[in-house]
Design a protein around this nucleic acid. Structure first.
Ligand SMILES: [Mn+2]
Ligand SMILES: [Mn+2]
Ligand SMILES: [Zn+2]
Ligand SMILES: [Zn+2]
Lengths: 143, 143
DNA sequence: GCAATAATTAGAATAATTCTAAAAAAGGGC
DNA sequence: GCCCTTTTTTAGAATTATTCTAATTATTGC
């Protein structure tokens, strides 16, 4: 429910830089995401956000999430047709979706691997982003 | 609008193998996907399918697509929150989404690269599938 | 051909997300 | 601190892709 000053500064700077205002809702949503980094859906963010801010609306949760994405403070993660999930980890990483437990785990990716993925693109293609999603069974769910 | 005998055989075998019946709708949808391999959405498949089979319903298009996916004759492709797209290319490949033109291009991936992606998973994780989606600018849309 | 089973169909229902327009809050100048 | 302008929040309606439902139709094995 409270944003460490380091993150508060990061948020304010990013908002300022994009000409948007700092509000307690934006701050709160950011803190909710940082607190439990388990890739919650918008509904889950909404439920958690209401604990510390009962009057916040779902529309605002969506608005804040979008603002945080626009300002590159978080990213969104999609698995097939499932509801979008949100992730405050800004490092190069892929996502592993466990079909058993439903858990989503960050998989750190060496820069070199990203480089190889870029290298495999045909002449004339340039990618600004690569999205990598594994699915299978995580360590907790193995026999 | 017509399914090459090679594909017809593949379809029939896959359906038989999963205990499902061969129907003209399933055959038709499969042929629509094979004919123009541009990753159409369900709506686009529906529009194309009606040209040769005006009485087909959208529900059937969805049903057939699901059957084809279940029997591994096609795969589905998702980009962020966009409608699901369908792809009859069963080789190891990633998808490149051009932000400019909206085009979706298959990117063939060497097995070795898939191997490296698997190797990067932590101990105890096993993935049955990796989904790789690039986005950026394709060759046609470059300056 | 006939019964049993599976597939197709139209339309209703669902669910995540986006939109709308009114009310509230922020920030800058005084 | 107060006023004005602009931005943000809010509740609820609207949208859109997809799934569900229940009735009709087609397929298969006998
Ligand atoms: Mn993540
Ligand atoms: Mn493809
Ligand atoms: Zn698991
Ligand atoms: Zn392009």
């Amino acid at each position: 429910m409270n944003l460490a000053p380091e993150y508060k500064a990061r948020l304010d700077e990013a908002l300022e830089h994009s000409g948007q205002r700092s509000t307690k809702q934006r701050e709160h949503i950011f803190s909710v995401l940082l607190e439990k980094r388990d890739h919650p859906t918008a509904d889950e963010v909404y439920a958690r956000a209401r604990e510390g801010m009962p009057s916040i609306s779902l529309a605002t949760v969506y608005n804040c999430l979008e603002t945080l994405i626009e300002t590159s403070l978080i990213r969104q993660v999609n698995f097939e047709r499932e509801p979008t999930r949100y992730c405050p980890n800004l490092t190069n990483h892929a996502h592993f979706y466990c079909r058993e437990s439903g858990e989503i785990v960050d998989i750190e990716l060496p820069d070199e691997l990203i480089g190889q993925l870029m290298a495999v693109l045909p002449e004339g293609f340039s990618a600004s982003h690569i999205d990598i999603a594994y699915d299978g069974k995580c360590n907790c769910c193995h026999d």
